[in-house]
Computed example of a mutant assay.
Amino acid sequence: MSRNTTLFGLSIGLTAALCYGANVPYAKLAAQAGADGPTLVLYRAFLMVVVLGGLGLARSRSLAVPAGSRLPVLGLGIATSFVGLCYISSVAFIPVGVATILYYTYPLMILLVAPLVDGERLTPARLGIFALAFAGLFIALGPNFTSLDWRGLTLALMGAAAAAAQFFCAARATRGSTPLIAGFWTQLIIIPIALAACLFAGRLNPPSVLVVAAFPAGMHILLFVLAFGFHLLAARLTLPAALGLVFCAEPVASILLATQVLGEGLTLAQISGGALVLIAVMVSVLAESRKQVAPA
């Protein structure tokens, strides 16, 4: 890949991370209005299947996945499902700050696995950038380590592992197929998994609940659709190790938007930690854009 392609991919990835982060406060508002997480995931997946399927058929008249991309697409669908289910479920057992910090170890997991999967070097510069971003998250979130439950810890780390797998699968799924087709099948795979989660939790709400929570649910779905689309496009243009570092900006976007949407005030620790994360992300983008990246 050329430097311009890498820079463009990282810029698109940063946009995806910001959109992912921005949809979290709206998800909380939707849950307060009766549209809880599993409900949003289920109906969001239905909507995306219709939209992506329609666009895919209009563009190529086929939704078939090339034989070489079927396993990565399957892996992408399963990993994407478990990212949400494990991460969201973990906060029932441990504080949100602890869950978030454990979940955002996934860029480190990507860095550690990338030499084996993609043949990338585990450079001191990338480890240093991750350390700076992780320190910023730790300061900004200020977790409380007094109430730890092994179930929450396990779920948060499983969510992190699923997120790392998602990046590697997305890179392969979108290079052997188009982002539209990969996205369609990913969301189709999510539907039965999300439905099972709703039934298990006893919260299979009717679609009318989205009408009651129309604005926050609509904003959440819109931001997620944009984030998911940009994520798949960025995955096609950028190697997972570089892209994972950029996604550290996601929780900062959540914190900043929460001040506007939820009326939550920013503490000095959140401002300081968020600044460190953003500095790390910018350094990562600049460093990666200056390198000639070999094709995966």
Rank of each mutant, 00 (worst) to 15 (best):
I255T: 13
L245M: 10
T123N: 06
P251L: 04
L257D: 14
R59G: 04
G274F: 02
Y20H: 09
V285E: 08
A173N: 06
T80M: 01
G136M: 12
T105N: 02
L52V: 11
T100V: 09
A294I: 13
P206L: 07
L52K: 09
C198Y: 07
F46H: 10
A45N: 00
T186L: 03
L245W: 09
P240H: 00
Q292G: 10
A31G: 07
V283K: 06
A45Q: 05
L63C: 00
R172E: 01
I101G: 00
L266E: 15
P25N: 11
L268N: 15
F247E: 12
T186E: 11
S147H: 13
V209Y: 07
A197N: 14
A99C: 01
L57N: 15
W150E: 08
A31H: 00
R121F: 00
L40F: 04
D149S: 06
P38A: 02
I190W: 06
P206R: 09
P207I: 03
A92S: 05
R44M: 08
E250H: 02
P251Q: 12
R70A: 12
F167D: 02
I12N: 15
A162Q: 03
A30W: 00
T6C: 08
G97N: 12
V277S: 08
A275S: 14
A64G: 05
A30G: 07
C86W: 07
F8H: 11
M1R: 09
L122V: 06
Y87Q: 13
L29G: 04
L262T: 15
V285T: 10
G54Y: 07
I110T: 13
V83M: 04
L262W: 08
P107A: 14
A160K: 08
F200L: 13
R175I: 04
V225H: 14
Y43T: 10
L63K: 06
G183L: 05
C198T: 08
Q187E: 11
G37F: 06
L286R: 15
R44N: 00
L155E: 03
L29H: 01
Y26C: 12
V113H: 02
P179T: 13
G9V: 11
L278Q: 09
G34P: 04
L180N: 13
W150F: 14
F134L: 11
V51L: 05
P115M: 03
V283D: 01
A45Y: 08
M219V: 04
I88V: 13
R126C: 04
L7I: 08
G244H: 04
A135T: 15
S254R: 05
A242H: 14
R121W: 00
V98L: 10
T15C: 07
A173K: 02
L210E: 09
L14F: 03
S272L: 02
R44I: 04
T5W: 02
Q292W: 06
A249C: 10
Y43G: 12
I129E: 13
F145Q: 15
A30V: 07
A125T: 13
V49C: 05
L276A: 13
A16E: 05
S254H: 05
P192S: 07
G244I: 07
M1N: 11
G128Y: 04
C86E: 08
P179F: 02
L116D: 02
R236K: 01
P72F: 06
I110Y: 05
R236C: 01
I193Q: 14
L188I: 06
L52W: 06
V83P: 00
W150P: 09
L276Q: 13
T105Y: 03
